[in-house]
């Protein structure tokens, strides 16, 4: 039980700490001035790209387990 708790804690906090570390690293980088060549991030296109990337990477990471669990359950149940 104890090691499951340990895993749960790690699984919770590593995904929180890692982005914080990246953000910390980025904050030390020099700021490039805005120009016409700068990619604007407040556009629908950029939002769509970011969202699609998140969606695809998450899908790829969790689909196998989802398929074994809920999806299989649903499909078998429908039968």
């Amino acid at each position: 039980m104890l090691y499951i708790m340990g895993i749960l804690i790690l699984a919770r906090y590593i995904p929180i700490l890692a982005p914080l570390a990246i953000a910390g690293l980025l904050s030390t980088k020099r700021i490039a001035p805005q120009s016409l060549g700068t990619l604007r991030v407040e556009t629908p296109v950029f939002a769509l790209m970011t969202f699609s990337t998140i969606l695809i990477v998450q899908l790829l990471s969790f689909v196998p387990v989802l398929v074994l669990g809920p999806i299989a359950e649903q499909l078998v149940g429908v039968r």
Partner: peptide, 21 residues
């Protein structure tokens, strides 16, 4: 490209044991 490959391999992977997939 990965998305399509998933739809090819995942059903094949479990087809033997969970035909409903």
């Amino acid at each position: 490209n990965d998305v399509a490959k998933y739809f090819a391999i995942i059903p094949a992977l479990f087809a033997g044991t969970i035909p409903a997939l």
